[in-house]
Amino acid sequence: MPPPELLSLSSNDSYTSTTTRRIHPQLHIKNSLKMSRAVGRTTDWAEEEDEDSPQAQLPPPQTIKNKDGTETTITYTIREDGKKIKTTRRIKKTIVKRVVNPREAERKEWAKFGQEKSKAIGPQSDTTSVGENIVFRPMANWKASAEDKSENEKKKNNLKDAKIKCRICSGDHWTTKCPFKDTMAPEGDNAGAEVPGDGPDEQGGLGQGGSSYVPPHLRGRGGAGEKMGGKYERDDLATLRVTNVSEIAEEQDLRDMFSRFGHVTRVFLAKDRETGRAKGFAFVSYADRTDAAKACEKMDGFGFGHLILRVEFAKKAT
């Protein structure tokens, strides 16, 4: 039966460092050097320089035994920027008794040698320290769960970074929530910039709307009879409403499909703001109504993704 042996001061320490937030890495080394000098070890010139430095004037490290069985160690160091640092750490030492085989017990009694020669029993602070606690919990499917986490975080970050900008008034709200939704067309749209009165005096003949700027492609057809009711009317007349759009569709997909029939001025695909997926409907505006009519005819019933598109002219906004 192997003898029970008092094995270790396992450093189950929960040390707190007060007075300083950052403990300089040299902290341990310097102190230990000082201690080793005290026991008469030869030092080399690099360390000797410290003698004249303020390092020598620091109070010696203190160890206080607390009532609850813990120890408080106070050490002093000087940081590179010359500030004096007092480090207080409270260490709780637990003695763990373990039964080991005689070979191990014998080895435990071996004298130290080499660089450790004549050093005190127990771990030296210059070579041994205790790291921060690591939680290691093995789990099946570790990889999947780790990836899930990072992906979710990424999405969250994306949402955080994404600036909400209204396409009608450039305010920081969603376009659908815009108070001017019914009265203004989206910015950058053909009839968009609404600067009544002070534009160049070229009148496109759209009359009633009072818009001073007329895009070039509309100028020639200014007086066309079918245009009535104002600028929104014009927009709606060449706009198709596309429904039953696949969830995974992108605006570019629609643009590619619809630009076959003519110049597409705007594609709007409604997306869910949480998931970023398409809501299932979109608007496609053409520069020319005849193109729109052609597209409407051809694309209605077109299979896109796993769904069949339904295309019709957009209803007039009220």
Partner: peptide, 9 residues
């Protein structure tokens, strides 16, 4: 068990 250095070679 405790990270104490026994010696160097």
């Amino acid at each position: 068990h405790n990270g104490e250095r026994l010696g160097t070679y």
